[in-house]
Design a protein around this nucleic acid. Structure first.
Length: 413
DNA sequence: TCTGGGGTCCTCGGGCCC
DNA sequence: TCTGGGGCCCGAGGACCC
């Protein structure tokens, strides 16, 4: 049996889910971003301004297009999560600040992100997949790897038959389309799924690496980001073929033993990673960017309240999902965009908001806070299932778990 | 008016112990 | 007693991904 791995990627996932709810917006410049939901406000406004009908949340597809908020009216700090193709034509794209986007395309409709809705559809399409091909690896909200090797029909036409079945079943169950790449491994399957978007299928065999993969820019390899790409370019390496032509020893010399060896393997399309069907979370975190930059002293009260709320949110996440953790960390982003993190590992596991807040407060004391802050985050790592926590162990004789630097009073609020 | 939020993994340096 | 590993853990930072 030949190893056949598929990468399945939903087409324009967030936008497509929004089109299901708001078909009237299809084809228009739409930007998804910002944080606040506004359906309730929309319904309220409609009932005031178009009282000839009693509007309810079930009427979302009937909302007139001119009732949607426009990008030009947005005030705040958000970024674009995704943009429709009509909006991209104006130069608007993912990760761009909303204010900058508003200058490029003021008439674009602004929809808030609705992760709860996207997760609902995410669960739905993944359920369709595991019902047909049970060995599936979750790779985020809109993509998965699937091991076709032992699935009935998974070998036919290099995987094309099974890929077609998955596409049809997902469309039937959710109304959404996806693209599939099938290849000998995850690395190649991921690249293949991009070849034929949207609603496409691409089959890559081992002998296709030179013709299909080598002409591509290095950046197409999953794992080569902007930094590595820039370093490769400095050495005159632009395509995967050029990367493949370098001696492994040369790559190791310039990129380190681990990264260098990996670059060589990737360029030759080699990848033995298995499809992993279940994994445990390593950490959980909450972070927030403020409406304006805050100063540790001048905005102490506001900052303290946000800090406490973040701790409560992480604690609630842990409790809801049944986890405890023993490494508490904070993340700060300063007004110059520099990031600082501090961690502290406790003797015991916790998911208690007060304890998390307390230890996070001790971490905060180890940071120079003279610059203003734009982001604050609280993280809990070294996770464990709450049900697996061993009973509390007695304190080691003569030792305490007090942190090294915590010499001041601990009243953080 | 630049630049979100939630993750994973890797590297590197320091401390500690053998 | 001093020095030098190696192994391990921890904390900080960075790259990358969706």
């Amino acid at each position: 049996m030949i190893r056949r791995i598929a990468h399945l990627d939903m087409d324009a996932f967030y936008a497509s889910v929004e089109w299901l709810r708001y078909p009237q917006l299809k084809g228009l410049p739409v930007v998804i971003g910002g944080a606040r939901r506004h359906e309730d406000e929309l319904i309220e406004r409609l009932n005031t301004e178009r009282p000839e009908r009693a509007w309810t949340p079930a009427d979302l597809p009937d909302i007139p297009v001119d009732f949607f908020p426009l990008l030009r009216d947005y005030v705040g700090r958000g970024v674009i999560t995704t943009a429709s193709y009509a909006a991209r034509a104006f130069g608007v794209g993912s990760a761009m600040g909303l204010m900058k986007a508003a200058r490029l395309c003021p008439q674009a409709i602004l929809l808030p992100v609705d992760f709860a809705e996207y997760r609902k559809y995410s669960r739905a399409f993944k359920q369709v997949i595991v019902d047909i091909a049970p060995v599936m690896e979750d790779r985020g909200i809109d993509e998965v790897y699937i091991d076709f090797t032992d699935v009935p029909g998974g070998q036919r036409e290099g995987g094309r038959v099974l890929a077609r079945l998955l596409q049809k079943s997902i469309l039937q169950a959710t109304g959404l389309s996806c693209s599939v790449g099938v290849a000998p491994n995850k690395l190649l399957a991921k690249m293949a799924s991009e070849f034929n978007k949207p609603n496409g299928i691409s089959i890559v065999h081992e002998q296709d690496v030179q013709t299909l993969i080598w002409p591509l820019p290095c950046r197409k390899i999953n794992g080569i980001g902007p930094k590595s790409d820039a370093r490769l370019q400095e050495h005159g390496i632009h395509t995967i073929g050029e990367l493949a032509a370098r001696e492994p020893a040369w790559l190791i010399e310039h990129f380190g033993p681990s990264h260098g060896a990996w670059l060589h393997q990737a360029a030759w399309g080699r990848d033995e990673r298995p499809v992993v069907t279940e994994s445990e979370p390593v950490s959980m975190s909450r972070e927030t960017t403020f409406d304006r930059d805050l100063h540790a002293v001048r905005d102490r009260a506001e900052l303290g309240a946000i800090f406490t709320e973040l701790a409560q949110q992480v604690a609630a996440d842990l409790q809801r999902k049944g986890y405890v953790g023993k490494t508490i960390g904070i993340k700060l982003r300063f007004d110059d965009f520099k990031i600082a993190t501090r961690d502290q590992t406790m003797a015991e596991y916790t998911n208690d908001a007060h304890r998390i807040r307390q230890v996070a407060g001790q971490c905060l004391k180890r940071v120079d806070l003279s610059r203003r802050l734009r982001l604050l985050g609280v993280r809990v790592g070294s996770l464990m299932h709450a049900s697996d926590v061993p009973p509390a162990q007695p304190e080691a004789p003569g030792g305490t778990s007090l942190p090294l630097f915590d010499v001041q009073s601990t009243s953080a609020e």
